[in-house]
Design a protein around this nucleic acid. Structure first.
Length: 940
RNA sequence: GCCGGGGUGGCGGAAUUGGUAGACGCAGCGGAUUCAAAAUCCGCCGCUAGUGAUAGUGUGCGGGUUCGAGUCCCGCCCUCGGCACCA
């Protein structure tokens, strides 16, 4: 029975062993010769219409990494599947070629960013081709190509024209030693990442795009018009846009500036979403840059350095939430707009000048941040919100107090207004003397209040004079109306979303097409002079933007008056490049930004990329689309109908300890693993026996040295194995951990596919269609397995769950191998025909070769465009079916019934079963539940 | 801190969405083939008890709903992301 004893029928021109190198080069040569992946608008070969699927364009960092392989294989499977379904597919590719890494690389290698970038593109393109990805390379683009960024500039000028782009000063991180602007991530503990210099905040002019004009539309579409986006992604965008409805109102004051004029016309504005708590304001806090803070510094010079000190520290929401709240009292007072009370102005390090009016009202009783601030500085707390229950409890305590003391009742307000910063103990001690019960009740209330006040639940107003006992919305309405009547405020909607600052004081980007003239000011470059070409020979050295020293670039004449002028040296944020590249693919080489072809392909049917782009890129792209729409360049509202966020690839991390707690990372491939008693990895040793420590599982990356080079995989196992592995390792949206041995398993499966086909080549070539009547029981069972797996595979293709598509193929092969060569040629043929087609999108090379070698191409056409297989209804019919038998919900066995059995017959069979006799303990069935085709549950 | 995703064997993961938990694969163990090894093929493989048939138990923890819960509800724990110019 051994394999060697079987006379293997040889087939002409077919190798008996799978050789990935010859198979893959043959397939790729063929596809290239027939230009297999060129997409043409309205191609009559594809009657079902277009299907545009695109991966986010990669940054050309040097080599592909496994994340790319996964991303592009998902994309490739999608379009290959859709093409076999009859759609006219488009899958283009390009390069996000501008950006900071090229400048950093230039500093290290002394190579110009342009040369470095183009070399990387060459290498990565070759790798894409080696992977057999079905890209239409005729539409390739690089964003650093003047033919591309010309349209960034053109559209920027259009935005300037209609007010969508404007110039204002912006606050940036400035490195005084390197003379350069730093990104937030380049600031580490307040110092520049290269120079170590203390980073300053500088105000410099820059260009902004008015994305907030579209905030309402973007939010509305996020919530209602993107059904193909995940809930999670929509939520991230919703939070980012951050709509909040509240009240903007003023605290009047008579604080005057040095010239004797009222500061800000005597009105200090704040915005709040909790207008129901305005009666609880006990202080106000302003940002260190706020006019009142500046004025306080002038009036009391001792305060100025203290106020300046509050400017330090990060400004992101996360940093603000975690940092210690600090402040300085100014000795200045404003007036509460409703009560007329004097309220002291503080300067707080948690108030940002860039948010709203740069000032907040302080309600310590109902805002945890204000609470912490007030507790630290002894600011009074005034409670103005309580739940109905709390209100009733107060009355009960008051009554208890009254009956205990025989004195006057305590009002709920009195009870609730225990001053938490004052002598609570003293107050309680007094109550305790007269009534121990009341004392306990008060302590309990204090705890409960602490909990309730800061919870999201909005209770009733109390202690609020004429606004007492109102629900949240009623209180806001009443208070807003009163403020409006006094001319001091109104309801307002604000967004967290801010306008998009696109100016970068960097070299390697799209030049902003404006000219500075001493007489005319800032003048746009005329359209006919576009593109403003970036000189490509500079090698940045870290001392600021080389364009600032490039006289040839700088020197120009003013387009308005003709006098000598200076060119702008700021370049655009690279998110501008990626905001619309997917539309340039559709209109490759057009002499306009986009042309009619864009109307054919867009909106995109499927976009694929990492979740890390959930906000910036995706929001900018959506904004850009709407801006183009409003300028009449296109007719749709949203660019991406469906969005898939593939998960990260992870790997184990190992290191040897260095001095001062440093970690010397070691590639996992160099480590011989050790395991603890439960079988978990807990460390390992190097070749020479040096012990290494286990650092857990983390994202594949250069710094941890735990990346896997796809090139090694392709060389050793071939592209098909690499593709099969990355699809099999987990669902497209899940994170996946790398495993070397699992790659071997993927290779093993492909060898078995090859061997199966080679051993049955003669059967397959000569067989006709399956005649179900002539099959043996075993062959019928095999065919049932085959078509069941096909059904699963088709289901999973539709829901893009590619890991189980692969396992379905494995199930097919497991079943088909039971039919030995020569035993049933028709079934062998049907099996190969289905298996090769379901595998084609995953492993296109081996399936191409087997499909053509076995002669399917002659009967069914090229695999790329052949018809997608459907399960045969007849093959899925069984004479008898097994049902799970449960007794009282516990699985106890199974019963076999004819597939035609009705509910009564199944109930009877179940009741009569040995299991019911055994586990039912002689009791008669009370109830029998039948789930058709699945199980029967007998309740006794 | 706030918001979100996720916890299933030694490992990656499945369970067509309330119906046999662990499909498929990796690793491991036993066997066949081989002079030997590689490769390949066959079998076993959640945990506990038992030689065994079998029984009990089991999807992060604690409750609940249901004939039936990995799946639904309530309360926790852990973990990974996001929270404005790295792409």
């Amino acid at each position: 029975m051994s394999r060697g004893s079987i006379a293997r029928p040889r087939f002409p021109d077919m190798e008996s062993q799978y050789n990935h190198k010859t198979v893959e080069s043959a397939a790729q040569t063929h596809w290239s010769a027939i230009d297999a992946y060129r997409s043409i608008e309205n191609d009559p070969r594809f009657p079902k219409g277009k299907y545009y699927a695109c991966s986010m364009l990669p940054y050309p960092s040097g080599k592909l990494h496994m994340g790319h392989v996964r991303n592009y294989t998902i994309n490739d499977m999608l379009v290959r599947y859709q093409r076999m379904q009859g759609y006219n597919v488009l899958m283009p590719m390009g390069w996000d070629a501008f950006g900071l890494p090229a400048e950093n690389a230039a500093m290290k290698s002394k190579k110009a960013p342009a040369a470095w970038t183009y070399e990387n593109i060459r290498v990565m393109k070759a790798q894409c081709q080696a992977l057999g990805l079905a890209f239409d390379w005729s539409r390739e683009l690089a964003t650093c190509d003047p033919a591309y960024y010309k349209w960034n500039q053109w559209f920027f000028l259009k935005m300037l024209e209609n007010g969508l782009a404007y110039r204002k000063t912006q606050i940036v991180n400035w490195d005084p030693i390197d003379q350069t602007v730093l990104a937030n991530e380049q600031v580490i503990d307040g110092r520049g990442w290269r120079s170590g210099a203390l980073v300053e905040k500088r105000e410099i002019p820059g260009y902004y795009l008015n994305i907030t004009k579209y905030a309402e539309e973007l939010l509305d579409a996020t919530l209602h018009k993107l059904p193909g986006w995940s809930e999670r992604l929509r939520l991230i965008q919703e939070n980012w846009i951050g709509k909040s409805e509240g009240v903007r109102f003023a605290f009047p004051h008579d604080i005057k500036d040095a010239d004797g004029k009222l500061v800000q016309d005597g009105k200090m504005y704040v915005f709040t979403t909790r207008a129901d708590t305005i009666m609880g304001v006990t202080f106000v806090a302003v940002a260190p840059e706020h006019p009142l803070a500046i004025r306080a510094g002038q009036l009391n010079p001792a305060l100025a350095p203290k106020i300046d000190a509050l400017k330090l520290g990060g400004t992101t929401e996360a940093e603000l939430a975690l940092k210690e709240k600090e402040g300085v009292a100014t000795g200045l007072f404003v007036t509460h707009p409703l009560t007329g009370e004097k309220i002291e102005v503080w300067v707080g390090n948690y108030v940002l000048i860039i948010y709203g009016d740069g000032a907040v009202m302080g309600v310590p009783a109902h805002d945890e941040r204000d609470w912490n601030f007030a507790a630290k500085y002894g600011i009074p707390v005034k409670t103005v919100i309580g739940s109905e229950q709390l209100y009733r409890d107060c009355l009960a305590v008051s009554n208890a107090y009254q009956s205990a003391t025989g004195g006057a009742p305590l009002s709920p307000t009195e009870l609730l207004n225990v001053n938490w910063n004052g002598d609570i103990a003293g107050q309680l001690a007094h109550i305790a003397r007269v009534s121990p019960e009341a004392s306990n009740a008060v302590v309990g209330l204090a705890h409960q209040m602490r909990h309730e006040h800061f919870s999201a639940e909005r209770g009733l107003t109390i202690n609020s004079g004429k606004f007492d006992r109102l629900t949240f919305q009623d209180a806001v309405n009443a208070i807003a109306a009163d403020l409006a009547a006094k001319g001091l405020g109104e309801k307002k909607t604000t967004f967290r979303l801010r306008d998009w600052g696109i100016s970068r004081q960097r070299y390697w980007g799209t030049p902003i097409p404006v000219i500075h003239c001493d007489d005319c000011g800032v003048v746009p470059v005329p359209e006919k002079d576009l593109p403003v070409v970036l000189p490509e020979h500079h090698i940045p050295d870290g001392s600021g933007n080389p364009l600032n020293k490039d006289e040839a670039f700088l020197k120009c004449s003013c387009p308005k008056c003709g006098k000598p002028a200076r060119r702008e040296t700021d370049t655009m944020d690279t998110f501008v490049d990626s905001a619309w590249y997917y539309m340039r693919y559709t209109s490759a080489n057009a002499d306009t930004m986009v042309d009619a072809r864009n109307d054919y392909w867009m909106p995109m049917d499927q976009y694929i990329g990492g979740i890390e782009h959930a906000v910036l890129h995706l929001l900018y792209a959506r904004f850009w689309t709407k801006a183009m729409r409003d300028m009449g360049l296109l007719k749709f509202d949203e660019p991406f109908k469906r969005m898939t966020n593939h998960g990260m690839l992870l790997n184990h991390i190992f290191y040897t300890p260095g001095s001062h707690g440093a970690k010397n990372y070691v590639p996992p491939t160099d480590v011989k693993l050790t395991h603890d008693e439960k079988g978990h990895i807990n460390g390992g040793t190097l070749e020479d026996g040096t012990p290494v420590l286990y650092g857990g599982i983390g994202k594949m990356g250069k710094s941890e040295k735990n990346g896997v080079d796809p090139q090694d995989l392709i060389d050793k196992y071939g592209a098909d194995t690499a593709r099969l592995y990355v699809m099999f390792v987990g669902g497209p949206e899940d994170a996946a951990v790398w495993s070397d041995t699992a790659v071997e398993g993927a290779m093993r499966f492909l060898r078995r596919v090859w061997t199966y086909c080679a051993d049955r080549a003669a059967d397959i070539a000569n067989a006709g269609a399956v005649d179900a009547a002539t099959l043996t029981a075993e062959q019928k069972a095999t065919r049932f397995e085959l078509h069941s797996a096909l059904k699963q595979s088709n289901f999973d293709y539709e829901r893009q769950q590619y890991n189980t598509v692969v396992s379905a193929s494995m199930k097919m092969l497991n079943a088909l191998e039971a039919v030995k060569p020569g035993a049933c040629p028709s079934l062998a043929r049907e099996g190969a025909s289905i298996l090769l087609r379901t595998l084609a999108p995953v492993t296109p090379h081996i399936t191409y070769k087997l499909w053509s070698d076995l002669g399917f191409e002659k009967t069914d056409g090229a695999l790329l465009d052949t018809e997608w297989p459907q399960p045969d209804a007849g093959a899925l019919v069984q004479d008898e079916i097994k049902l799970v038998l449960q007794i009282n919900g516990k699985t106890r066995g199974e019963i076999v019934v004819p597939s035609s059995a009705d509910k009564a017959a199944i109930e009877a069979a179940a009741a009569a079963s040995a299991e019911v006799a055994k586990f039912g303990e002689g009791r008669a069935p009370k109830k029998i539940i039948v789930v058709p085709g699945r199980l029967v549950n007998v309740v006794v």
